[in-house]
């Protein structure tokens, strides 16, 4: 598949306000996005997602590294690169609240040098597609948050750029509108052949829409993989073991050493051991611990994990790894 967005070794450092110290917001980040792909950009707060997105949009200049959009270097030929990209960065805040729905669409098209006549047909299509036709003459400040969000996406769509960046597209909207936005985005990728990069905290949105995800933590990429691969990987690694007896003190000590993030609970009827394995071979070490006291095993099940849990685990492991390295 052909890459339409190529991010190579970008770095960005900010100076802290009223201080002489610097913060490395993005540190040597590289990834590519293929034409027609929906990529999820994930990370905890302050991980560097928005900084990365703004550098792709050309709103923020990287200290080093290159970003090319459809083969155009966005630092050397910023305005040419912007022909290939549009974005919804702050949802409803990206709109003029004193203008109507239609006026916003027409104004932003005009800002790209297009006449009202030229975009009239496309605006009609978008109003229909985004179910905004009945609200076309309504002032934006009188619309619901969900409608404003849909309009912001419609404005980005009107640019007819190949790449669309969406920062938190479902933030602050109700569940029903959230589903509607998801359907719209799915429809855009399927029928309009656009490439979409979504940054979101809503794991359901990412899991539902994206084929691949890049997870950033502390300014670095910690995972770049297809979502189904991550799901499979973590499904294999997470086990729920029901025991007929309880574990001895010695066994519990060993478990703490070998599997520091395990969870062990026991009640009168049963004990359960919830454990994630870093490698599949570690299951033998787990069995060795159980075998040393001949603890009877009732059942071993692969745990069902959702994408949110996977995300949490990846970030936690990365942070623990970084801590171990620094100590």
């Amino acid at each position: 598949m052909e890459a339409i967005v190529e991010v190579r070794n970008i770095k960005k450092t900010y100076k802290k306000r009223k201080s002489k110290t610097y913060v490395q917001a993005v540190n040597d980040v590289s990834f590519t996005v293929n034409r027609g792909e929906i990529l999820g950009l994930l990370g905890p707060n302050g991980a560097g997602k928005t900084t990365t997105i703004k550098m792709i949009c050309g709103l923020l200049e990287q200290d080093s590294g290159t970003i090319t959009i459809n083969g155009v270097n966005n630092r050397e030929k910023r305005l040419d690169a912007l022909n290939n990209i549009s974005a919804v960065l702050e949802g409803n805040r990206n709109l003029y609240w004193r203008l109507t729905v239609r006026e916003n669409l027409e104004y932003f098209a005009g800002n790209r040098g297009r006449s009202r006549k030229e975009v009239a047909g496309r605006i009609e299509e978008l109003l229909e597609q985004f179910h905004l036709k009945s609200k076309e003459n309504e002032l934006v400040n009188r619309l619901s948050r969900g409608m404003q969000q849909k309009l912001a996406i419609a404005v980005a769509m009107l640019a007819d750029s190949e790449v669309i960046l969406l920062d938190e597209p479902t933030l602050g909207i109700d569940v029903e509108t959230g589903y509607e936005v998801r359907e719209l985005l799915r429809d855009i990728v399927k029928n309009d052949q656009r490439t979409i990069i979504i940054s979101s905290h809503d794991m359901d949105v990412i899991q539902d829409l994206c084929e691949r995800t890049v997870i950033i933590s502390d300014g670095k990429i910690i995972t770049d993989d297809r979502i189904e691969n991550l799901m499979r990987l973590f499904e294999v690694r997470s086990y729920l073991i029901r025991l007929e007896g309880s574990l001895s003190e010695k066994q519990q000590q060993l478990l703490k050493q070998k599997f520091p993030h395990h969870q062990y609970t026991e009640d009168l009827a049963q004990a359960t051991l919830d454990v994630d394995l870093a490698k599949s071979e570690e299951i033998y070490e787990l069995f060795d611990i159980l075998k040393m006291e001949e603890t009877p095993v009732d059942s071993i099940d692969r745990k069902t994990v959702n994408f949110e849990q996977i995300f949490m685990k990846i970030v936690k492991e990365a942070k623990n790894g970084a801590l171990a390295q620094s100590s």
């Binding site: 040419d80 960065l89 790209r112």
Partner: peptide
Amino acid sequence: MRGTLEQLCMTPMGLWKV
């Protein structure tokens, strides 16, 4: 403050022309 300046900066025409 409104959040529209970034959108204006993203026009391929250039902010100064706007």
